[in-house]
Design a binder for these strands. Structure first.
Lengths: 188, 188
DNA sequence: GCAGAACGGTACCGATCGGTTCCGAATAAC
DNA sequence: GTTATTCGGAACCGATCGGTACCGTTCTGC
């Protein structure tokens, strides 16, 4: 547990927001849980909106680092992202993707939250692109977007079905996308 | 515009909840928009929670009916669900799936909202199952679950990318799942 | 050792939250 | 035409929302 108030706020907020939703967690609760004084909070953040922004930025960085690590731990291939997803979906406190959830409870589709979510997903797509290109696939970009769609589908499905089943199903689909020729076999 | 207060409340709430989120819409706003008196609201619903429940039930029924219609209008095959999805994602006020969004902003993963969302998705999966079986596919159940995952992936992707692109991408994947043999070609 | 920053606690603000109660008008049933 | 129901409007409730200001203490840099 860090002694820095700002760090404690970010850490506590990331956890509470993810577990119960951003709107569901008031500043009051956050202060009570983190043990930070009200004044200290507003010394570090202009308001709740800025805290939300900082929390999402932080989560983006951490989550991306976690994914890269876990993918490496699972062999480093593009399919490993689904192993990582399955692993995290097995966790008791899995609640889907923080950015998808944030979009879902954001009122303004043109606000900062959607921008951050897009940024986050683009970064993940770029990682997928790299992983697939390393396998020598010519159409890596299109495949990366398909993989991203599969990951998000598995993530929201895992929210309600619990466990790694959805991720494994997505992995099976991805496997076939990697194996089979893109649309029509090139005529000889 | 229906004259019945209950119907007006359900209709207004469904729209507001979908556009801005359930937590973001207070009873106050809802009453102002629908022109219903405060007392009338609590005559028809025990509280906001019961209204949310009724709205989701209503949406489930309407959405399912809409999907069946639209699928028929697009030829009736299982792939038509992605055409329907693309069509709705083109709309200006498209905000993803109301049930995924409701789950995302629900605090309790074991509460009623998750139960309703599961019920909803199971019904859609059953419809997919039927459509795929009508095509004569032996493993229709597994395919239906894969299609459901693709639909949800396309839906959450369309929230941030706007337009029918994600749905068309999901359709392309689904097409290959239908065409190719499931895992390994049966050895002759 | 001392100055200044960072801290937690508390009182307070207006606004809004979900919810209750009473009232008078409109409407529908018989 | 009278009775019974449904309706919208408004006053009010305690709780909580996000946010501000001031307090005294603790910790740190020099």
């Amino acid at each position: 547990m860090p002694t820095d108030a700002r760090e404690r706020l970010l850490q506590g907020a990331e956890e509470l927001f993810y577990e119960e939703g951003i709107r569901a967690v008031g500043v009051e609760r956050l202060l009570a849980v983190t043990g930070v004084g009200r004044a200290s909070f507003y010394r570090h953040f202009a308001g709740k909106d800025e805290l939300v922004y900082a929390v999402l930025k932080r989560r983006d960085a951490h989550w991306h680092a976690w994914l890269e690590e876990t993918v490496t731990a699972h062999g480093g291939g593009p399919l490993a992202v689904f192993d990582a997803l399955a692993e995290s979906a097995e966790s008791e406190n899995f609640r889907g993707c923080a950015f998808i959830n944030a979009m879902a409870e954001a009122s303004d589709p043109h606000g900062e939250i959607f921008r951050l979510a897009n940024e986050h997903k683009n970064k993940v797509t770029a990682l997928l692109d790299r992983l697939i290109e390393e396998q020598g696939h010519p159409d890596h970009r299109a495949l990366a977007e398909q993989f991203m769609l599969l990951m998000d589908g598995a993530t929201v499905t895992a929210m309600r079905t619990r466990g790694g089943g959805a991720a494994r199903r997505a992995r099976a689909i991805a496997e076939r996308l990697l194996a089979a020729p893109p649309v029509e076999p090139v005529p000889v």
